[in-house]
Design a protein around this nucleic acid. Structure first.
Lengths: 211, 211
DNA sequence: GACGTTCGCTACGACACGGTAGCGTAGCGA
DNA sequence: TCGCTACGCTACCGTGTCGTAGCGAACGTC
């Protein structure tokens, strides 16, 4: 999934089937790793082909042999560090929510993606390719949220008037907001409270809050 | 409040008191306006002294006479377009929330700030000065939210276990998230639903939802 | 009207970066 | 062992940007 771009960027005469020159993969990995490093340190603006070359030890010419321009390189690098989001099925809405939001909190704080995210969002506002990348990323999370709510509905836990779109926006949005905009920590207590809020918003029970 | 930086950047021998050379204010305004334009069009990366000079018609040397570097200039420009957020007192929590969130939605979609925001958030992740600017901006909104909840509490509308921090993060976060991350529109219907959710989360009434 | 300030203009020198060409070398696969 | 491929290196050219110097002209103030 992640070597697709370079594979057709420089169509090799050979490459009969799955065989790939180990020199190629070494160069690619070194370049992508350096790109990720630079992204986390200085954002999109700090990623230049020259800087990547210096950091990775791969010659600038070699980089251009693999990627047509820095933009495609960045897209590949970001693609590299997009971990699949949690999609748990714990049997209860509360458990599913806790797992999903805890996973999101981890992604937003301690994963490599965390440091790149602000730059990514900014770039997505102007770059169509980056935008679709981010779109897929958020879409995956949304559908994971939807599935959890659907399971809860199948169990008869949900009220009839629940708008999954609004509920997920509020829950996920709270974490994004505190991390990106308000620069507040994402404590386990916060997650618990958000889960409580969502549960009380969506379920039939007059009060399902567990201390 | 916004001419503070330039006033001490080039300490004029004269300027006995409040008198300022109209040529200075003209240059400053032209430069700041051009900076805001460039910010909205291309983000932080697109703001260069040269580009500002061309756009504004003010000579590059003149810009350097007023600001030590582009960073300070950007901070001044952003400061310029930070509108005060809505702080309404409608008499009901629902009314206050609707007014605040509608104001936020407007800021996030149609104000000049809307286009600059992604770049601003990204820059705040690395620049201390920008970070404090954004901090003040969010703080103002937070305290406005808190005041509305405090008024509701004084009216006896609020439940005892309401965490204003979490509630505001979810409400405000939903709008930020949809605008910045999910790239979804902020419809009036969405705002209504978020308000409904907040009201049902915080008030004693079993159902205060108005169709 | 005279003086002082601000401005615009041109011309710099330095640097970073993009992107390419050519050549020799090292490593891979058979 | 041999051919082929990928690589590293150097040297480029062009561009954009930074930040400064010096000058004359325009403008505001008194």
């Amino acid at each position: 999934m992640s070597q697709a771009v370079a594979a057709d960027a420089v169509p090799p005469a050979s490459a009969s089937a799955g065989r790939v020159d180990p020199r190629v993969v070494r160069s690619r990995q070194a370049v992508l790793a350096a790109t990720v490093e630079l992204l986390t340190e200085a954002g999109m603006a700090g990623v230049t082909v020259e800087a990547i070359s210096q950091r990775s030890g791969v010659a600038k010419t070699t980089i251009y042999r693999h990627w047509p321009d820095a933009s495609r390189l960045i897209v590949d690098a970001v693609h590299e560090l997009a971990e699949p989001c949690a999609d748990p099925d714990t049997g209860t809405l509360r458990g599913d929510l806790e797992a999903m939001l805890a996973g999101l909190a981890r992604t937003l704080t301690s994963s490599p993606m965390a440091k790149v995210l602000p730059s990514l969002i900014d770039a997505a506002a102007r770059d169509e390719e980056v935008a679709s990348l981010r779109q897929a990323w958020t879409q995956e999370r949304r559908s994971s949220f939807d599935r959890a709510l659907a399971r809860a509905a199948a169990r008869g836990e949900l009220r009839a008037d629940v708008d999954a779109d609004v509920v997920s926006s509020m829950a996920v949005g709270a974490l994004f907001y505190r991390r990106l905009v308000a620069h507040q920590p994402l404590s386990p207590l916060l997650i618990t409270k958000v889960v409580d809020a969502v549960v009380s918003m969506t379920t039939n029970d007059p009060r399902t809050v567990a201390d």
